[in-house]
Computed example of a mutant assay.
Amino acid sequence: MDRLPSWIRQHVAALRALLVLTVVTGVVYPLVTTWVAQAVFNGKANGSLVERDGKTVGSAIIGQKFTDKDGNPLKKYFQSRPSAAGDGYDPLSSAASNLGPEDVLDVLPNPQGADAAAKEGKQSLLTQVCARSKAVGELEGVSGARPYCTADGVGAVLKVFPDRAVSVNQACPATPFVATYKGLKVECGKPGEDYAAGRTVPVRGGAGTPAVPADAVTASGSGLDPHISVAYADLQAPRVARERGLPIERVRSLIAANTTGRALGFMGDPVVNVLELNLALDRP
């Protein structure tokens, strides 16, 4: 080996290092961590799968939808919080929407758009929240109104110019949520028109405290949260009791039985596991 040129010796040493690191990090380490996980955290390491009648029906740590084939909520079940992970609760696409509180302007669908994205448009985070709140309110029989939302479930946002104001999230021929703004007539938004030069003015309105809880209209940071707040569970309880013909007290007792308290007794808020609660409802 000493007689070999230095560049060959360097390449042989690099190859040895590559083989050793490949075995250690690509074989030994995964096998050891998998063994430890299976030995110590068997259930969680395998996904905390939940079975009923011999069939896997979900995971205790990953949310899921309780809807029909058309995406409509199954009224006899408690509904999960929204998800921004892929098409919903996709572990391979775990993520939030990455949209913040300043994301208030929609891109209105434009049938004359140059591509599919322009034709479909895009909802802002504010409009997504407003639309969800309206839908949950209708499902639960309560007001879905909330600040900065119009009655038709989009963001109440104006673009203000010196001579006019435009409700940019309400596509024509919709009637704007306010007729005038500081003496200016408010128009509906026209798809494809550029409103960038206008001043953005979100309008809070007089909705007051929303009847629909925040976790009913916002996705979790991971998009996989299997829990809802106790407030959201309580909101759904009358509907579930009515659909199943159960006393409301029975449904509320099941909510309490499937509620987890604050972490370490003081962090966060109590939460309800939706899958386990729905399975408890299905038991005879």
Rank of each mutant, 00 (worst) to 15 (best):
V154E: 05
Y148I: 00
H11S: 10
P101D: 14
N72Y: 14
E120A: 14
V240G: 15
V186Y: 01
L224Y: 03
L254K: 07
P238S: 09
Y181K: 01
L281R: 00
R81Q: 11
Q128R: 12
A118C: 06
G113I: 03
Q170L: 01
H11N: 12
L246C: 06
R164T: 03
R199F: 02
D234C: 03
G58T: 03
W7Y: 11
P91A: 10
W35T: 15
A219H: 01
L235T: 00
P191G: 01
V27P: 06
G198A: 08
S229A: 10
M1A: 15
D269W: 05
L4A: 15
D103Q: 14
D115L: 08
V24K: 05
L264I: 09
R283F: 15
G141T: 05
G189S: 04
V104A: 09
A165Q: 01
A37M: 12
G221E: 12
G183S: 10
C188N: 01
L49Y: 04
T34D: 10
A257I: 02
A145Q: 14
T33C: 14
G183Q: 10
A17L: 13
V240F: 06
F41V: 12
T22K: 05
V157H: 00
Q112T: 07
Q112M: 12
F161Q: 05
S97G: 14
A13L: 15
S222V: 01
G63S: 12
T260W: 11
L246H: 09
G223Q: 01
V201H: 01
D106L: 06
R262W: 09
P91H: 07
L21D: 08
P238K: 03
V32T: 11
L275C: 08
D225C: 03
A211R: 03
T150H: 03
D215Q: 04
L184D: 13
R16Y: 11
K190F: 02
K185D: 15
R250S: 10
L31R: 11
E140Q: 14
A135H: 09
V36I: 09
M267C: 07
R204A: 13
A196C: 02
S80Q: 13
T34K: 07
G268T: 09
L126R: 13
G121P: 05
G153P: 00
V28S: 05
S229N: 09
A118P: 04
E249H: 03
A95H: 12
A45G: 11
P238R: 03
G43K: 13
Y29I: 10
V201M: 08
S59V: 07
K119G: 13
S220R: 00
V272Y: 02
A216S: 11
T180S: 15
K134P: 05
Y232K: 01
V157L: 03
I62R: 10
L158W: 00
A165T: 00
S167L: 04
A116P: 03
G183A: 11
S59I: 08
G268A: 10
G54S: 14
R146C: 09
G153N: 02
G141C: 11
D2P: 01
A197T: 01
G141Y: 06
V28K: 05
N258Y: 04
A280Y: 04
K122A: 13
L279Q: 11
N278A: 08
N258K: 04
Y232G: 01
L18W: 14
V168D: 07
R81T: 05
F177Y: 02
G141K: 06
Y148S: 11
L15A: 08
F78V: 05
R262C: 06
S48V: 02
G43W: 10
